[in-house]
Design a protein around this nucleic acid. Structure first.
Lengths: 198, 198
DNA sequence: AAAAAAATTTAATCTAGATTAAAATAATGC
DNA sequence: GCATTATTTTAATCTAGATTAAATTTTTTT
């Protein structure tokens, strides 16, 4: 709505680059996608990408940072809206998945961590760890308020996150499918959490 | 127990190669692992691998075929032992996960499909599709016998399989963790399926 | 213990694709 | 319209790592 006036052309273009890259990485993996693939997708030649990004590794890195942002925002939003722990979890799942399959595309490649250089890898893993901890916290809240049945939060978190992270592997931008995922996944993933009454 | 007399040294060594390769691929991805990595892991030099395998692509391919075998066997075993649909699902999950985190190692890389050449990719995708269909069939059996609540089998299958396929991404051979996964995952993943009474 | 076959090695290619450099084009401010 | 800055291109490197070839060692057979 707002003119979004700033966000120089540079920033915008850079975003497009990231999005295209994420798309490719998700489909063909880090090795499978050449910079040429990404560039062509935008009607550019490969060297042009170096204007926006230091190198290929940084491309993955930036995708990750954005993915982490997305996840964090979804979670904060869900928490801010309150409700029982279970409700928060359900909402978080929906928000996160919505972005994941939405028009902004799967900026979230979650499979290419090994491709990162150590410093970046550590940073990304830390972000991921943080996200997991926050999710586990939500589960605990739910257990405390009686909406979620007692469970091993670590394993439950791993199970649910895995399911979400895997989505880009099989979903490739079909609108009908996107809707189905958003409608179904939160329920499927959270149904097993509920305590009898909920 | 049986002398296992045949299985020429060749076959055995080839198995070791596949296992090592799968391990590397899971940890560092297709691009991230060089043939040298795999070879060194076995105390060999890279060219030696060509004695067992046509090329790198075939290495991934064979890993997939084995992964598919593993999944299929787990499923057949679970079905063979009968019980309600829900029980079959639970058992299948346990068997499959057991192998996945077990000593045979995660032969199951499920992330490198894009690296396969078209012919192999098609074959592997077909195996995967088949597996999914079989799983969906189990769900339907459960819905028919009243052990599983009505659900969208396609989406439910995707959710559960994703969670399993993601395991190799974060699990790297810690025995305690392995036990925890086997103990917890089947429950976590199947709890949401049960119809009230079960 | 020689010969044949199996397994692996060292040394030599070969290539895709990332990166860099230099040049060209487009956009913007004045 | 000119100068400056932004963007992209074409042409030129450079390198890791896959693959192949030839040579060597190890194992098996008889």
């Amino acid at each position: 709505m707002a003119p979004n006036s700033d966000e120089s052309r540079f920033e915008l273009q850079r975003d497009r680059v990231l999005k295209a890259a994420a798309h490719c990485f998700n489909q063909k993996g880090y090795s499978g996608t050449s910079l040429k693939d990404v560039a062509n997708m935008l009607g550019l030649t490969d060297p042009a990408l170096y204007y926006y990004v230091r190198n290929k590794e940084e491309l993955v890195y930036l995708c990750y940072v954005r993915a982490a942002d997305v996840g964090r925002e979804a979670m904060q939003k869900a928490v801010a809206e309150g409700g029982s722990g279970l409700e928060q979890v359900r909402r978080y799942l929906r928000y996160h998945i919505e972005i994941m399959v939405g028009e902004h595309g799967p900026i979230a490649i979650m499979s290419e961590i090994p491709s990162l250089k150590p410093a970046h890898r550590d940073e990304v893993l830390e972000l991921s760890r943080q996200h997991s901890l926050n999710f586990e916290k939500m589960l605990k809240v739910g257990m405390a308020d009686g909406s979620i049945a007692s469970c091993d939060v670590r394993m439950t978190g791993n199970a649910i996150m895995g399911s979400i992270n895997w989505i880009p592997k099989w979903f490739h931008g079909d609108d009908v499918m996107a809707r189905a995922i958003v409608d179904q996944f939160p329920g499927i993933l959270s149904r097993g959490l509920a305590k009898s009454g909920n």
